[in-house]
């Protein structure tokens, strides 16, 4: 069962994508929703809002432990920020992904943009950057960089963790979700 963090943001778009792929999922709004989860999606949204709700709803520690135990996780945009071991000018949230990210790294909404590029071995992938972060530095040599756009790292993989600065859930292209579902749980 895939768990989609549903405290705030674009979780319904991830759910739609999993519907299309025929993958069973459940939405996580409280601790009791974590039972039976084998992989986890952290959606786009406002990371400060999601962080506050993770703490208040008692989800932070259990999810951190699940990630540490090797559960496959995909974080998109705000989700990448929650996963990063270091966040510029801020405390880290969940952690687990050894990268340093910068929030709102392209500025305000006028800086939002889209491009088509390669994500690892996936060609012609449409990337939507909405007030997006990017990865400033990779903190361990075994973090794989899957995409660099305009000199900025925007997609990484570390073992079972996929961190994306953009929003695969806003596209019609389900190849990244398929790739994530292929990680062994």
């Amino acid at each position: 069962m895939v768990g989609i963090l549903a405290v705030q943001g674009a979780f319904a778009e991830h759910a739609q994508m999993l519907d299309r792929l025929g993958a069973a999922y459940t939405c996580i709004r409280q601790k009791r929703d974590l039972v039976g989860i084998e992989r986890l999606i952290l959606p786009g949204g406002e990371s400060t809002t999601q962080r506050r709700l993770l703490c208040d709803l008692g989800l932070l520690v259990p999810i951190r432990e699940m990630i540490a135990s090797g559960m496959p996780v995909m974080g998109t945009c705000a989700g990448l920020i929650l996963l990063a071991d270091e966040v510029a000018d801020e405390e880290r949230c969940l952690g687990g992904l050894p990268v340093r990210v910068r929030r709102n790294a392209y500025g305000r909404q006028l800086g939002s943009f889209s491009v088509v590029g390669e994500i690892g071995s996936i060609n012609d992938y449409p990337m939507r950057f909405i007030r997006a972060p990017y990865v400033e530095t990779v903190l361990q040599p075994d973090v794989q960089v899957l995409n660099i756009t305009d000199g900025r790292i925007t997609a990484v993989q570390y073992k079972h963790i996929l961190g994306l600065a953009f929003h695969p859930e806003l596209t019609e292209d389900d190849r990244l979700h398929q790739y994530f579902l292929s990680f062994s749980a």
Binding site: A6, V7, Q8, G9, A10, F11, A12, E13, G44, G45, E46, T49, C77, A78, Q109, S112, F113, S114, R128, I130, R131, H167, L170
Partner: peptide, 18 residues
Amino acid sequence: NDRYQLNKELAQMLKGGV
């Protein structure tokens, strides 16, 4: 228009929020 699409998408990121 892609700018309009990106603008609608920012609203999608606000969903479930206050």
